[in-house]
Design a protein around this nucleic acid. Structure first.
Lengths: 344, 344
DNA sequence: GTGAAAGCGCTAACAG
DNA sequence: CTGTTAGCGCTTTCAC
């Protein structure tokens, strides 16, 4: 029976969290042995381990990872920063990344930065203050201050979502320009000559739609309208943007939206006004949200393998963390492709 | 000029993270003074503070919150566990809660538990191992082991989403039964006599739809079908469920879906098959997702004030954390109401 | 207003 | 395989 509570007047049950020494005392071993049972069970004899495990259960011991982290200088935690998890690609990346890291014994600390870059530096400071073993961060446009802070943390960093020319460290993303060009090519091959875009005002979305418009123009196409709405994208914004474009919808037009949410709004509005899709208006979205596949009509979109990206990112991080493999480049272009449906 | 790097061969720039003693040395003060400048600036004379701040900036010092937490026994971090953030109510709660806590100097560590209760205990263990100062957790159905672990952490706990009869500590939620009854009442008042439900198979969703059906029956109504689909809800599942119900849709029917996503699917399928909404089929969803307001036709739904819930939860936690106010009950019923639109 | 000493709970490193 | 010693980087406590 454990003599619980070293406190001066330990009459009640121990309210202080039980610590490793309590477990050690109860099990009749040294604290270090308890630590080994938890972290490196192979290095403890089965009988000893059994005793210790019994003590752990009896006391309901929850190891203080804070103390362990301070001592070992490894927090067994990685920080992840994404603007939103509402976007399926981010959701997939984060989910897959989290799962893969968990299997390897790491916990992911998720932070949503939103689309404003205002206090991202402050966020990073608190995050890095907890000494994560690695950092997963979306977007490649960081302030100089942020970049310096990250660099000085001396931890593996994976930037996702964007392909940057000056990655801080490792990179898992795709070139948003390529998306625009690919979609333009797709429409051009179908004989389209009139084009339009609806885009959120975040840099990546703009890049996708801008490159689309440029590619369409250089192929001799006409761009009849480019609506820009405030991020985050909403159905409503898509509807409104299409409503504004309506007067120009006098001939067969190919519309590229920076998000499936906008595309759905556009299609909804078109249907309401009797604009035939895809005959008069062909629509391609981006993201392959469930909406694109399950709404009626289902619409064409660009799908990005978020799950694969998360897997790759976790692999990069773990390789660095466990020191296996050479410190290779750690760059990966996430595949994307057009999923053709009834709207084109 | 700082003599950086206490290492044996400090020829390169200091790769080791700068620590409080480095700052103290550069500023010509004791480490304790640096600590005060960071945590309790009022207790330091302005000139000293200025010197220290300069040193902090010069070295790019990022305080080690791990060490600070170990020492002070306060991590300045609270853990939040929700099944998903895909649901707008959870998203709102988390967002508002996070913002409110941030203002008070706390960081929120977000974990997604998913809908499976399989490894929630393991998740809790790692979470609590980091010694959060408080815990926000969705759902009130916890395993005994989980409840014990949480209780032994001796930290403020807020359960959200559910109203439980045996709250661990504080509670911000609503009775899902009430929702079902309210929606039933709403339909009954409109003269409906035939009812149906489509529900995800998570306990709360089932509770909402089940109570709806019960209330409808006890008022003399007929329940012609109750579809249950696997969580998480999808548009597709809603469509499929409605398709299966179609043979029974021979007379005016009121359908309650456990999620707007399902409701949207049902309405989409109905439209496809020429079933007039709301004339033959009246539909009410749950959640007030943007989809419900911006799709065409917009549909009636139940809205829950997630943002308010997050605010209240943060208030509860902070009151406990800062010791202000009495250790009062800390229970709050989140308001919900029906938003009537074109589908009913 | 500032500093010195002690220690938070754990693990690295070394002994045995 | 197990134990001992020292210390992670910070804050508490107490002294000045």
């Amino acid at each position: 029976m454990p003599s619980d509570g070293p406190g001066p007047m330990s009459i009640e049950r121990p309210r202080a969290p039980v610590k490793i020494t309590d477990v050690a005392t109860l099990a009749g071993v040294a604290p270090m042995t308890v630590s080994r049972v938890i972290n490196t069970p192979d290095r403890v004899s089965p009988p000893t381990a059994a005793k210790v495990k019994a003590a752990i259960d009896a006391l309901g011991y929850v190891p203080n990872l804070i103390a362990g982290g301070l001592s070992s200088r490894r927090s067994r935690m990685v920080a992840a920063v994404v603007p939103t998890i509402a976007h399926p690609m981010f959701a997939d990346v984060v989910q897959t990344f989290t799962d893969a890291m968990r299997v390897a014994g790491y916990q992911v600390m998720l932070s949503l930065s939103g689309y404003g870059e205002n206090d991202k530096e402050a966020l990073l400071r608190t995050l890095l203050g907890r000494r994560p073993d690695a950092l997963l961060i979306a977007g490649a446009a960081h302030t100089p201050g942020a970049i310096q802070m990250i660099a000085e943390a001396h931890i593996p960093v994976v930037e996702i979502w964007d392909v940057s020319n000056h990655p801080i460290d490792m990179l898992v993303g795709f070139a948003h320009e390529d998306v625009g060009q690919t979609v333009a090519r797709f429409f051009l091959d179908k004989g389209h000559t009139r084009f339009a875009t609806i885009s959120a005002d975040d840099p990546r979305a703009l890049q996708r739609t801008q490159t689309f418009a440029d590619a369409a123009r250089s192929a001799g196409g006409e761009v009849i309208g480019q609506a820009v709405v405030k991020a985050p994208s909403t159905i409503r914004a898509g509807r409104h943007a299409l409503a504004c474009m309506m007067p120009d919808l006098t001939a067969r037009t190919a519309l590229f939206c920076s998000s499936d949410v906008l595309a759905f709004g556009a299609i909804t509005e078109a249907r309401l006004h009797g604009i035939p899709v895809p005959d008069l208006l062909s629509v391609c979205g981006f993201g392959n949200f469930e909406l694109s596949a399950a709404s009626e009509p289902a619409f064409t979109t660009v799908t990005v393998e978020g799950a694969e990206a998360g897997q790759i990112a976790a692999g990069f991080v773990l390789r660095r963390l466990t020191g296996n493999g050479p410190r290779q480049d750690g760059h990966w272009h996430v595949p994307f492709r057009i999923v053709e449906r009834a709207s084109t």
